[in-house]
Design a protein around this nucleic acid. Structure first.
Length: 325
DNA sequence: ATAATAGTCCGCCAGG
DNA sequence: GGCCTGGCGGACTATT
């Protein structure tokens, strides 16, 4: 099976960083890779130079016809947002979507999807500072300002700037499994997984000194996911009450301790399904679930697949790789 | 598949 | 007064 073809649409006024997120995740050829995960191209309304909002000028090799063969269209942010992009660009993106391609936006790239009508009736997000404008300008869009990204299946949107990376990694995770996504994340030196539902505002987005944060407790928990961890145990490790622990945890990570733990356990299970032949029940126990039924509930909620379907999709198809964390 | 039980979350509030 | 902590009750969620 040929790797999915990813085409990013570079509009005038493009936010360079947004395009770079996609380039870095989908277009990398900077390490030994036994099989290419994606074919990646950049296109513009017409082949040639595109001026970015940052003052850089980039040379783009393809025109809109590149979208015709895309499996995934990536729309980076651009300014100004409320001016309708060229009709030909909108038509090409709409046509790609109608043909069955997935369409994703990074940051304020969501406005192009909105102008194209692809967000009507759908849940979507964008940079927190632009959410109000998106909601006002496009009343049919259900704007969620409190998440890092929204996956509506064929249409995906992400919040500001770096959340675009999270969405790109989310796509890799869905297409190629957690193992491949984790390896890319490690290469890019970003956190391997932030939940899409995580709040855009966390009180301490910049890491504090380790002694002041709960990072050590999270790391401790990741090392013993197979044990029956509960919130009192985590709080004890962090040397504070459960109430204070839960409050700090949410302030730092944007999600509650139990939900974080469940997500971490599902990720562990995903990796075991990809890399071992353990039965689903054994995987469940290794990942800290009491039995396969308990695993299934959360596995399906988070990945929208059953454990065995997940294994059938990914077992053996990801690049052989060093196991991390 | 369901219901009973145990665990989690969060607003509220008092105390330091 | 402003800020953080942690105990409590009741709604909600997970587990078996």
């Amino acid at each position: 099976m040929a790797p999915p073809r990813v085409v990013a649409l570079a509009l005038d006024g493009l936010v360079t960083f947004d395009l770079a997120c996609a380039t870095h995740v989908f277009g990398r050829d900077d390490r030994d890779e036994p099989q290419l995960l994606y074919r990646f191209e950049v296109c513009a309304v017409r082949r040639g130079r595109v001026a970015t909002s940052d003052g850089l000028v980039i040379a783009v090799e393809h025109g809109l016809e590149a979208l015709d063969g895309a499996d995934l269209v990536v729309v980076p942010g651009y300014v100004p947002t409320m001016v309708a992009p060229p009709a030909r660009a909108l038509a090409s993106v709409r046509a790609a979507h109608a043909r069955g391609a997935r369409v994703m936006s990074i940051c304020i790239g969501a406005f192009l999807l909105a102008h194209a009508g692809l967000l009507d009736g759908r849940r979507a997000t964008t940079h927190w500072a632009a959410c109000q404008q998106l909601a006002d300008g496009f009343p049919a869009v259900r704007v969620d300002p409190d998440v890092l990204y929204v996956d509506e299946g064929d249409v995906l949107t992400s919040a500001g700037v770096a959340a675009g990376l999270d969405l790109c990694l989310h796509v890799v995770r869905k297409d190629h499994g957690v193992q491949a996504a984790t390896e890319i994340a490690r290469w890019a030196v970003v956190a391997p997984h932030r939940e899409g539902g995580q709040a855009q505002f966390v009180d301490t987005p910049v890491p504090e000194a380790p002694s002041a944060s709960l990072g050590a407790t999270r790391a401790w928990a990741l090392g013993r996911l197979h044990e029956p961890l509960d919130v009192p145990a985590l709080a004890a490790h962090a040397c504070c009450s459960t109430r204070t622990f839960a409050r700090r945890f949410k302030a730092e990570t944007g999600c509650t301790p139990k939900q974080w733990l469940l997500a971490a356990r599902v990720r562990r299970a995903q990796r075991l399904l990809e890399t071992t032949d353990l039965s689903v029940d054994e995987v469940a126990r290794h990942a800290g679930f009491g039995n396969a039924a308990a695993l299934r509930v959360h596995f399906e909620r988070i990945t929208t697949r059953t454990p065995s379907a997940y294994r059938a999709t990914f077992r053996g198809v990801t690049a052989p790789a060093v196991i991390s964390s």
